[in-house]
């Protein structure tokens, strides 16, 4: 009896250790620098910028994205966790960005560019071809880095019952997404400004549900990171507009910039979204207090 109890305890410990240490990482990345400055290519100095409003803007993911998987527990099939970001997914995300900026007066058009149009390592020559074909002045190139982690918790001991693998959410999943946008003026090769968006999310799932949960969280995390990026792009545009009025792209040491209007264009001169509000603040409310005191003084003297 004592011997069988010892055996059971040993088995339990081994099972706990085996089940608790499984970690899977799926990483998806694409890099703008690999596209614009492929290995061995000489550095391309930026020239002075002349922006003609309204702008025709292209938005694209840097081509050549990769997906890698590292480690696997006994319970979850790593290859089912999803691979590279699909073209359909990318286009939906690009359309989200384009939609957020189309109503701006100083932007004539925002065109999502499928990755198929961008040759890996194509650099500015590839962008020049696109600019001519699509009539673009400016391109927004997106890089991304998404890492997904899975940890099998101690509840995984219930997986040995087989039913547990279907009903017990013993898999701890986390997804971290970072999306970077670099805005380039194509003719001058100048980086106008860059900004980023990020998202971190987590959840639990059964091992059977894990691949599906991973893919769903991946897609959701990309959407949230893109929404964060859209907000930061709007702020970045505002700051860029303020910098542009000083005559430099991003302050001292960066190329000179001239913003001019195309014939027949009479819209906004600065890169603002054109949304204004009339709102008084604490200073004016303080002044009203002063007026009340003045009114009381008048009443006392009357």
């Amino acid at each position: 009896m004592r011997r069988s109890l010892r055996l059971l305890a040993a088995c339990t410990i081994v099972a706990l250790v085996c089940c608790g240490c499984g970690t899977i990482a799926v990483r998806k990345t694409s890099n703008v620098l690999d596209y614009l400055y492929p290995e061995g290519s000489p550095a391309i100095p930026a020239r002075d910028v002349t922006l003609t409003l309204p702008l025709r803007v292209g938005v694209a993911f840097a081509p050549g994205g990769t997906a890698t998987r590292r480690g696997a527990s006994d319970w979850v099939n790593a290859t089912a966790m999803g691979g590279e970001v699909t073209e359909a997914q990318k286009l939906a995300l690009l359309e989200r960005i384009a939609e957020a900026f189309r109503d701006r007066d100083y932007i004539a058009s925002v065109d999502p560019i499928p990755s198929l149009y961008l040759a890996p390592g194509g650099s500015f020559d590839n962008l020049d071809q696109l600019a001519q074909a699509m009539g673009l002045n400016v391109v927004v190139l997106l890089s991304y880095d998404q890492a997904q982690f899975n940890e099998t918790t101690n509840w995984s001991i219930t997986y040995w019952t087989l039913v547990g693998a279907y009903v017990v959410k013993g898999e701890n999943n986390q997804t971290q997404t970072f999306v970077d946008a670099a805005v380039y003026d194509i003719p001058s090769r100048a980086l106008l400004f860059r900004t980023a968006g990020s998202d971190v999310r987590g959840g639990r799932s059964t091992p059977v549900e894990s691949p599906e949960a991973f893919r769903a969280e991946s897609a959701k995390s990309f959407e949230e990171a893109i929404d964060d990026l859209i907000r930061n792009l709007a702020d970045g545009l505002k700051v860029f507009g303020e910098e542009a009025t000083t005559g430099r792209v991003r302050g001292q040491g960066t190329p000179e910039i001239e913003v001019k209007a195309a014939p027949g264009y009479s819209g906004v001169a600065k890169f603002e979204n054109g949304r204004y509000s009339g709102a008084l603040g604490p200073v004016e409310l303080g002044l009203v207090g002063l007026l009340v005191v003045a009114g009381l003084a008048r009443r006392r003297s009357a």
Binding site: G267, K270, Y276, S277, G278
Partner: peptide
């Protein structure tokens, strides 16, 4: 011309 949208009665 820079005002595309406006609201508020602060004026």
């Amino acid at each position: 011309p820079q005002v595309m949208y406006f609201d508020g009665s602060s004026g």
